[in-house]
């Protein structure tokens, strides 16, 4: 294919990606070193209230945003270096916490709290997603043929459902006097309040994620199981391999590339977790890195968005993405050079 034809085919897509992915990325990078603020003026304001005999007057200096001739607020943009990063990371507070020995205080700072939760969330859900996916795939593979269609249909539902709605549907089972909470209370004869307990909420968020992603792992493992070499299995039996040995030494190695694939996708997606916080309204207890940026982008009470701090936190989030992507990219590069 000539370069010109290639460019014609790929051009529109590249244009979209440059305009809406690459350009914003650069601008976020720049914004994270800048702060845009309204220009303020100090004004002396004299306020007088009616009093007996004389008025009581007080003069105070107020800061008032400066307006241009159209009545818009004038803003300036300054380069502030790493100030926004410092505000997100709050290293001095971290230092104080370390030197005073109260390590737990670090987790009161939003960024470190989010980082702690995002990492535990990602790493703890990973083995469960793979385990559940593999177990479901083997069990479905084992089921009678006529059952497979409906079973796959039902299994796909948690995966296909809108993430926020999926999280809500589990929240409604547990929060307040949700039906499962009632059952648990009857079972253990105690009084439970799931929504008030940070760890319970954290567990529910992980449970939701496994419930949501396991079908994806299942479908992929199920497709992989169809291509297991039957001859290898038979020779394993002749060699006296038990059922578990066959799983351990034939099936799992065969599925290894798929396990790597799912691990990669899951790490990328769980690291970006966001909908859980919305669905479980957990912002008071557990937040994720992406939710932190989202929250900074939301207008506050005065209608201002903390764009620079959001950019800084977004750039810090990116570091994690780079680390996750490093091994697969290196492998791709090796394959490309070798092949």
């Amino acid at each position: 294919m000539k370069f010109r034809t290639f460019a014609m085919f790929v051009g529109p897509s590249i244009f979209l990606m440059v305009l809406f992915i690459a350009a914003p990325l650069v601008s976020v990078f720049l914004q994270s070193f800048q702060i845009t603020q309204p220009v303020v003026e100090m004004q002396e304001v004299e306020t007088c209230t009616a009093g007996f005999l004389t008025q009581t007057c007080t003069t105070e200096t107020k800061t008032v945003p400066k307006l241009d001739e159209f009545g818009n607020i004038v803003t300036t943009t300054e380069w502030v270096g790493l100030l926004s990063y410092q505000r997100v990371l709050q290293l001095d507070a971290v230092g104080a916490a370390i030197s005073s020995g109260n390590w737990g205080d670090i987790l009161n700072i939003d960024f470190w709290k989010a980082l702690r939760f995002t990492l535990t969330f990602t790493l703890i859900t990973l083995p469960f997603v793979i385990g559940m996916g593999l177990a479901i795939a083997m069990v479905v593979n084992n089921a009678t043929k006529s059952m497979k269609g409906p079973v796959i249909f039902v299994s796909l539902l948690p995966f296909i459902i809108t993430p926020v709605i999926g999280a809500l549907s589990i929240r409604w089972l547990f929060y307040g006097d949700g039906i499962v909470t009632v059952w648990l209370e009857a079972l253990f004869d105690t009084n439970l309040s799931v929504a008030a307990n940070g760890w319970a909420v954290e567990f529910l968020m992980m449970f939701y994620r496994v419930w949501h992603v396991a079908p994806f792992a299942f479908v992929i493992f199920y497709a992989g199981l169809q291509t297991v070499n039957q001859d290898t299995l038979e020779s394993a039996i002749i060699d006296g391999a038990s059922r578990f040995d066959r799983l351990r030494y034939v099936i799992v190695p065969h599925l290894m590339p798929l396990i790597v694939f799912i691990t990669l996708i899951h790490l990328m997606d769980a690291y970006r977790a966001f909908e859980e916080v919305v669905g479980f309204s957990s912002q008071a207890q557990r937040i994720t890195l992406q939710w932190l940026t989202y929250d900074l982008l939301q207008p506050d009470d005065a209608g201002n968005r903390a764009i620079s701090r959001a950019s800084a936190s977004a750039m810090l989030t990116m570091i994690g993405i780079v680390i996750i992507l490093m091994p697969p990219l290196r492998r791709t590069w090796r394959d490309h050079k070798g092949g």
Binding site: A23, P24, V28, M268, R272, F274, A314, M318
Partner: peptide, 17 residues
């Protein structure tokens, strides 16, 4: 592939202003 891994908030922080 790298773009696929980007969290959407990173991009939205670029669009918003």
């Amino acid at each position: 592939l790298v773009f696929r891994a980007l969290p959407p908030t990173v991009l939205v922080a670029g669009y918003l202003p």
